[in-house]
Design a protein around this nucleic acid. Sequence first.
DNA 1: ACAAAAGTGTTTATCATACACCCATGC
DNA 2: GCATGGGTGTATGATAAACACTTTTGT
Lengths: 228, 228
Amino acid sequence: MTVYKKEYRELQQIKLAVDCIIFGFNDNKLELLLIHRGFEPQMGKWSLIGGFVGENEDLDKAANRVLYKLSGLEDIYMEQVKAFGKADRDSSGQVVSITYSAMILKSEYNEEQVSKYNAKWFPIDELPELVFDHKDMVESAIRRLRRRVRNFPIAFNLLPAKFTLPQLQMLYEGILNEPIDKRNFRRKVLQMKYLIRLEEKDMSESRKGAYFYRFDKALYKLEQNFNL
Amino acid sequence: MTVYKKEYRELQQIKLAVDCIIFGFNDNKLELLLIHRGFEPQMGKWSLIGGFVGENEDLDKAANRVLYKLSGLEDIYMEQVKAFGKADRDSSGQVVSITYSAMILKSEYNEEQVSKYNAKWFPIDELPELVFDHKDMVESAIRRLRRRVRNFPIAFNLLPAKFTLPQLQMLYEGILNEPIDKRNFRRKVLQMKYLIRLEEKDMSESRKGAYFYRFDKALYKLEQNFNL
DNA sequence: ACAAAAGTGTTTATCATACACCCATGC
DNA sequence: GCATGGGTGTATGATAAACACTTTTGT
């Protein structure tokens, strides 16, 4: 924390921010929510959803507050990714930013807020030019996401409560950006007992129809081993 | 980064620090370098090696500067672990701290500096009471270390350039805190072609003597797959 | 009857694990 | 010759990867 008492007194000019990397899923592709920056510096470029940490505000709370302000979403699975702290990363001064990553179900997202804040979804392989080092932030978040989605049941945050296995597989293929063998995928998914098949079928995607499943959080909590 | 221009102007009272979690290895156990805190608050407890980030100083550079100041070591493998940002984590005010973790070879460590800074090595299962949330910091760094030591050749930072396989195995057993089968360990280690056996033997630990090996960084860079 | 997506098993290779004895040397 | 730590191989089970056909139903 600190070594010399005198350092404790020095006032830093460093500002502390959080940036939220919000993933959604659409058209079999991962998407990212960005905001059109309406002020200098770098006016006109696109930016992650971010803001400064408040006085006496927990870092995690700050990230959630910012996310809530700009999306209306609460209780979203959100994790710290990394601190970005190059002294010259923000041309307006020394700003250290901690990134947080969230995955949200787009259909629960309040579309009013999107336009209100000049926000827009972009497929992750068609991102516009981003301010400062936000491109690095996104890349590190995607790498982390691809690692974590194999070991934790976080992908279900991008799906409705009831979903089909083809949907789930397409989601994984979209996140990992690689094709997956259908039979192997289904076997692995169903071997873990966390997916409960419902009676109902989704008839909208095929004539045969695909069974709906739900993810049972309680069962997962018992074992907590997840691997895809 | 930022959403409202006005926020840009507000002066935060938040201070930004780095804390270094420095691991060494001794007597088949992981050790941690701590500093005796000689000032309030929490005078008398032990603390990680930390300090505030300087004006116009990169975060990584700040960590390295702090580490250098307190240990004399340069060019140490050091990685960002996590940001700690509970508003009340430091009783002297709002201080957000980014932790960095380094592993050093104790025999290269300047012993003069240790006493000069009231620093001391502690086995990780016999840590004294630490200030603030430093215990959480250490725990998260150890978890990360145990994860990474299996997938990256970072353990060699804790050994001299020439080392024996029994030494390496004891190091892994110490870090992971579990026994490892000798034959399986050696097979896996030698299957990756990064370890070069030297002619020389270490005769100090046994009558038969154990071959010295060295880790070939260049070979590792070619493939970069590592798994133990 | 055919198109379109859903669903289903087996084989093979690879990797992880468990396990016990001989070797080289100094005393 | 014996005590001490160093070094070696094999068999078994588990996991991952490749692969093709049948089912259902709306038109």
